[in-house]
Amino acid sequence: MTQHPQETVIGRITSVFGVKGWLKVYSYTDPVDGILNYRHWTLLHDGKRIPAELEAGRRHGPGIVVKLKGIDDRDLAQTYGGAEIRVPLSELPPLPEGEYYWHQLEGLSVVTVAGERLGRVHHLMETGANDVLVVRADDASIDQRERLIPYLPDQVVREVDLAADKLVVDWDPEF
Rank of each mutant, 00 (worst) to 15 (best):
M1T: 09
M1P: 11
M1W: 03
H4S: 10
T8K: 01
V9T: 13
R12Y: 01
R12C: 05
R12A: 06
I13V: 11
T14P: 02
V16E: 10
V16D: 08
V19W: 08
G21D: 08
L23Y: 01
K24M: 12
K24D: 09
V25K: 01
Y26P: 00
Y26D: 00
S27R: 00
S27C: 03
Y28I: 00
P31M: 06
V32N: 06
V32W: 00
D33I: 00
G34T: 00
G34C: 04
G34E: 01
L36F: 03
L36W: 00
H40Q: 14
G47E: 04
R49L: 14
R49G: 13
I50S: 09
P51E: 08
A52W: 02
E53N: 13
L54V: 05
E55N: 11
A56S: 15
A56V: 06
R59M: 08
G61N: 07
G63S: 14
I64E: 02
V65W: 00
V66C: 05
V66I: 13
K67F: 10
K67N: 13
K69V: 13
G70A: 14
I71L: 14
I71S: 09
D72M: 12
D73N: 15
R74M: 15
D75A: 15
D75N: 15
D75M: 15
D75E: 15
Q78R: 15
T79H: 10
G81D: 11
G81Q: 13
G82Y: 03
G82D: 06
A83R: 03
E84W: 10
I85W: 00
R86W: 01
V87S: 02
P94L: 02
E97N: 13
G98S: 06
G98P: 11
G98R: 01
E99D: 11
E99S: 12
Y100C: 11
Y101S: 01
W102T: 13
H103I: 12
Q104I: 08
Q104H: 10
E106M: 10
G107R: 02
V110A: 13
V111H: 09
E116L: 09
R117S: 12
R117C: 06
V121T: 08
V121N: 05
H123D: 12
H123T: 13
T127R: 03
T127S: 13
A129G: 10
V132W: 03
V132I: 15
V135H: 05
R136P: 05
D138H: 07
D138K: 04
D138T: 06
D139M: 04
A140P: 01
S141Y: 06
S141R: 05
I142Y: 02
D143N: 14
Q144W: 04
R145V: 02
R147C: 07
I149C: 09
P150A: 13
P153H: 10
V156Y: 01
E159M: 11
V160F: 04
D161G: 10
D161S: 14
L162A: 08
D165M: 08
L167I: 07
D170W: 02
D170E: 14
D172C: 09
P173T: 12
E174A: 15
